[in-house]
Write a protein that binds this DNA or RNA. Structure first.
Lengths: 186, 186
DNA sequence: ACCTTTGCCGACTGATTAGTCAATTTATTT
DNA sequence: AAATAAATTGACTAATCAGTCGGCAAAGGT
């Protein structure tokens, strides 16, 4: 039992359910089966814990997406693979996904440097630029396209969760949503 | 000077800057030029204040959008008007807009009843259903389309803010983004 | 076996918090 | 003008919070 991991796990659940400032460190420690001192042994402050959790989740998602963002037989299939994998990851990790969403709209986002964000988005921006270069999609600012595409992932995720569809229906909606996104990019 | 309004105004600024639980009621009262007792005279609890603020902003936005959601010469122009007006409102009320975004991804959203949300989205859903009926847009679930369209508004808003464009460039991006959304809906 | 480092504990603290309340001022009604 | 009601105050409290600290236990190196 890795205590550091248990702390992150408990923090994730509580942050999503109660909000960042809404969950006391004492409660995180209790839920993780750990003393408060241990929590502050691993994370100097509560803010550090929040940011570490964000970094951990981002990194795990990026590692899964790495395999999806590679080149398929054409741009359509490549973008489709990214979209499907992102949504599959979201469906498999709903709490992590909701945390990312909450974090990215919170004042905590200011703690993440511009370079860090740039590094995270780099592979997606590169793919968009290549697709524009090749004439596969329209020539809009890549960061605008990136923002529009990722925001769709959150929208589709919420629609599926809210209407709690079967996994078959979900897959159908995910497919349909990609068709729409692709049309949007033409 | 309406104290109730001053409290809402101060709470909005602080919530967006520091987060919901990150801002003490004492600070809200001080910033509003009011005693703490006055704050709790108008709002029984802090949660009540948060929810009242959400309701206030939602209502103000809805009132502005009411004029935009009316019928123009065709569906294209009507949807376009909604999109433009929403983004214009966001540009004119950035703090309010960011609050809505933050609130809607927070655990506070659970305090808003399903009926309340249904009532808020009703005019947009009705417009979507009419457009589907008329064959002006594709026949996807209206709530999915609604989620996808509104998420685009947030995406475009963030892109504009982040790249801090001139108002001319902004208008161009807003126009372009609607063209993309419309294509997506075909 | 001894020493050093590291992990871990949980009682403790000083500061801060949401919310109360009795008293005072201001507005409204009679 | 008197009486009633509503708005406003800020000192106060009980609870809670983030973070500390001295000590114990385990692990690893020599």
């Amino acid at each position: 039992m890795d205590k550091e991991y248990e702390i992150l796990k408990a923090a994730l659940q509580l942050f999503v359910k109660e909000g960042f400032h809404g969950t006391p460190t004492s409660r995180i420690a209790r839920e993780a089966g750990v003393a408060t001192g241990t929590l502050f042994h691993y994370y100097k402050t509560k803010d550090d814990l929040v940011i570490a959790l964000y970094a951990d989740i981002k990194e795990k998602m990026a590692r899964v997406l790495e395999t999806a963002v590679v080149w398929k037989k054409d741009f359509f299939d490549t973008f489709r693979s990214v979209h499907l994998n992102m949504l599959n990851w979201a469906m498999d990790h709903p709490t992590e996904f909701r945390f990312l969403e909450q974090f990215q709209t919170s004042p905590f986002l200011a703690f993440i440097s511009a370079e860090e964000i740039k590094k995270q988005t780099a592979p997606h921006i590169a793919l968009l630029e290549a697709a524009i270069e090749a004439g596969a999609i329209k020539a809009s600012p890549p960061y605008l396209l990136y923002a529009m595409i990722t925001s769709q992932v959150f929208a589709v995720y919420h629609y599926i969760q809210q209407s709690n569809l079967s996994s078959h229906e979900s897959r159908q909606i995910i497919d349909e949503s990609f068709e729409m996104i692709w049309k949007m990019l033409q």
